[in-house]
Simulated scan of single mutants.
Amino acid sequence: MAGIIRGMPDEGRINRNIEILKSKEWFLKMYQNNEEFSLKDETVRYKIGWTNVKKALKTYKGTYKLKKKIHEAINITKSLWEVAFEN
């Protein structure tokens, strides 16, 4: 579903952005609590990959938006998994 409009970012970009984000305490907590979704879900990886993480982290507003974007993607993914495996 993700990546239809822009295509998926390359794995190198996704991994670089994840490494940058791992230096932030808020991301580490989110990452550790939701590692399976952070690493494997293509929607979460798409959002992390296409975001200019360095630029977003320069300001409070940018950091807030990035945090919200990642958090929402993880919550959507978790909800979909819960519905899929409900029965």
Rank of each mutant, 00 (worst) to 15 (best):
E19K: 14
R13W: 04
N87F: 10
E36H: 07
K58G: 02
K24I: 08
I20K: 15
G12K: 14
Q32F: 07
V53A: 08
S79A: 12
V44G: 08
N17Y: 08
G3R: 06
I5L: 15
K65P: 03
E25V: 11
K47C: 09
E36I: 04
G3Y: 04
F27Q: 09
I18C: 03
I20N: 07
K58R: 15
I48W: 01
K61V: 12
H71Q: 11
E42A: 01
E25I: 09
Y31M: 08
R13M: 14
R45K: 11
K40D: 10
I48P: 07
L39Q: 11
K78M: 12
Y60T: 13
A2N: 03
I74Q: 00
Q32M: 06
E19Y: 09
L39F: 04
R45T: 07
L28R: 15
L39D: 01
Y64K: 14
L80S: 08
T77D: 03
L28M: 15
K54R: 15
K24T: 10
L28N: 12
K29N: 13
A2I: 05
E82S: 12
V83T: 12
G62C: 08
E82D: 13
I76S: 04
K58W: 00
A73T: 05
E72Y: 13
I20Y: 13
W81E: 12
Y64N: 07
K54E: 15
K68P: 00
I48F: 01
V53L: 02
K55H: 11
N87C: 00
T51K: 09
T63Y: 07
S79H: 09
K47F: 13
G3F: 07
I74H: 04
T77P: 00
L66W: 03
T77N: 04
F27D: 09
T59C: 04
H71Y: 14
L57Q: 07
I76A: 06
G62I: 06
K55Y: 12
P9L: 05
K55E: 14
N15D: 15
R16Y: 12
E36G: 05
W26Q: 05
R6M: 10
I20C: 09
Y64M: 11
K69F: 00
I4N: 09
N87T: 06
P9V: 03
R16N: 15
